[in-house]
Nucleic acid binder design. Sequence first.
DNA 1: CAGCATCGGTCAACGTTCGTTGATCTCGAT
DNA 2: ATCGAGATCAACGAACGTTGACCGATGCTG
Lengths: 201, 201
Amino acid sequence: MVEEATVKRSARVTRQRILDAATLRFSQHSYDETTLRDIATDVGVDVALVHRAFGSKEELFEQAVKSTIDGDFQQAAQAADPGLAMTSHFVQSRLSPASGRADPLNILVHSLNSHRANPILRELVQQDFIQPLAARLPEGELGAALAIACLAGVALLRDVLGIAALRMADDEEIRPIVAKLMRACLGPTAEPDAHGVRPPQ
Amino acid sequence: MVEEATVKRSARVTRQRILDAATLRFSQHSYDETTLRDIATDVGVDVALVHRAFGSKEELFEQAVKSTIDGDFQQAAQAADPGLAMTSHFVQSRLSPASGRADPLNILVHSLNSHRANPILRELVQQDFIQPLAARLPEGELGAALAIACLAGVALLRDVLGIAALRMADDEEIRPIVAKLMRACLGPTAEPDAHGVRPPQ
DNA sequence: CAGCATCGGTCAACGTTCGTTGATCTCGAT
DNA sequence: ATCGAGATCAACGAACGTTGACCGATGCTG
């Protein structure tokens, strides 16, 4: 109330509010089920404005995806032990808080099978998930892709399908298994610890 | 021309042809992208007939899902070493042949985020994937759910997203890693073999 | 063999929803 | 007061699942 009076009609601000609303919607619903009219209602503007602000629904979706990419995951991928860092990042950022928050993985698992969203999400996974992870691996992209596949699969069954066993499970119950999954995919980069366990093959 | 004279108009046969065409479509495309008109064209009948033969699109989808459930997976889940059996079943039935064949996992990963298909697929995963697997596990449903999540994730990134690293990979390159994933989720139920490896926790 | 009821199948259309677009209004700075 | 940009309004065109009315062959009945 003290600051900015009535917010001044600003395309810049409105565009951002639309993008935020769209990002949240796309993190909770699929591309096909998310309507420009829904987003417009959230923001409190007309449908036409939502459309014109980004040119097309597809463009809006792409911008929404990009807006959720922060450095957190890339940092985790380049940690000393990527598997462990990614596990922590995964468990802390997805399981503990509400699962509906704006997040690239949430958007990914909610719109995987819309053919409009497909190429955009493929590039997201390739560029922002697999590549930063594969850069530090001897196995190349295969291990990285499999690691991402595991995380995406868990998120899918938990948040999209709503499998009870995954919704109810405690974070610390899932963490060690996810850690094992990451290790299986990324290789035992670090942690040649006290056990000295080597995989059979 | 010599064989079967115009096949005699039979609802039984036509219904089966519709179901087969629908099953194949649903194994390659999402619920939303699959049109009753597409299925009708495949079979060579009218749209109305496709609809009336099953009452609704949703019912047709449910029947298509059920028609793909064979005993193969359940057999694998109840093998001496479920992880190993499931790995073989997964690698052989999905990676080697064309990925577009009629298969419950294919249907699952293609229609996960349609809210119409969602409850049907949730029940499929719960009843036909998780439960037969969890019945033999000390960890209960959690381990089974995570194992299914891994397989679904790999299938998703490979066949729906089309991640190159997974499409190009040789079967025998993926198999050992998938085997490790299964072992991480299901625990070393069998195979207390020469290695005697115990998980750290 | 003729008539008829029935079932498999088609045809045309409805009602809804969606992304999209052109014309129009309205606020705000100059 | 004016002009442009922000925002709205109304509508289009396409696509979908769904429905009621209508054909045509099949097979039973007399």
